[in-house]
Design a protein around this nucleic acid. Structure first.
Lengths: 122, 122
DNA sequence: TTTATATTTGAACACTTGTTCATGTGTTCA
DNA sequence: TGAACACATGAACAAGTGTTCAAATATAAA
């Protein structure tokens, strides 16, 4: 999450810069805000508990109780992670009586999980 | 990264379990090893400095010095992050004299960045 | 060799994170 | 209502992370 815990400092200590490349890339870089959102999005994916939850949900919608059985975790731990996943718009939920059912937010999540799995399998 | 800093505990404290769903999902879950690799992969993507480096490299191959100018960071900080990115196989490098040029590891990285950007833009 | 420059590395520390425990909220059913 | 259950939340703590500073390594040119 790119910490900012110290006063700013010397930014660069080298001299040979490819000005054409730097200018072109600077022009086409996503905004700082976009980079932060992207990082936040992937940060939420970057935990094996949460990726386990998402892998389970990519198979079938289910309630928190089922998830805590499948992942062999306490209900509280699952719930905390589900809240993060919902806040980050990776997961949606709907209530049906006592139970709350969770599912992936949309197809992008499915796609990213699949591409990631393919990449690490190479 | 799913901490494991305490002795194991009561896993689940609910009773109404959808046994058909649980059985089916348990059968089709990725291995624990795959989940760890996936989480590690996304964890590396989950930092705005690194996502900035990747966004820059998705535009053009370049050296560490160019990166530290574009991202306005110390050369040391960039180097530390590049090492992580290389270890996680998100980035490759080649030396040419004094300089080292970095580029994305393959098309999957490009694709995941693009899908992620689309998702957060919705 | 000596000098200059690009990159790498190690240690330290403030900040962040995930789980646990305890408790609170919302819903159903007797 | 009251009990039972599914889920949510807050505080606390151990473990993990990213940047900095200082120093080392690698290459090229004088």
């Amino acid at each position: 999450m790119a910490k900012k815990n110290r006063p700013p400092l010397a930014a660069c200590d080298c001299r040979t810069i490819h000005q054409d490349i730097v200018a072109k890339v600077e022009r086409e870089m996503p905004s700082a805000e976009t980079l932060l959102s992207l990082a936040e999005f992937f940060r939420v994916l970057g935990d094996s508990t949460r990726v386990g939850i998402l892998a389970a949900l990519s198979n079938s919608e289910m309630c928190g109780c089922d998830l805590s059985v499948i992942l062999n975790m306490s209900q509280s731990a699952v719930s905390h992670q589900l809240r993060l996943l919902k806040q980050a718009r990776l997961v949606r939920s709907r209530r049906d009586g006592k139970m709350v059912y969770f599912r992936l937010d949309d197809e992008h999540i499915h796609e990213i999980l699949k591409t990631g799995t393919t990449h690490i399998a190479e």
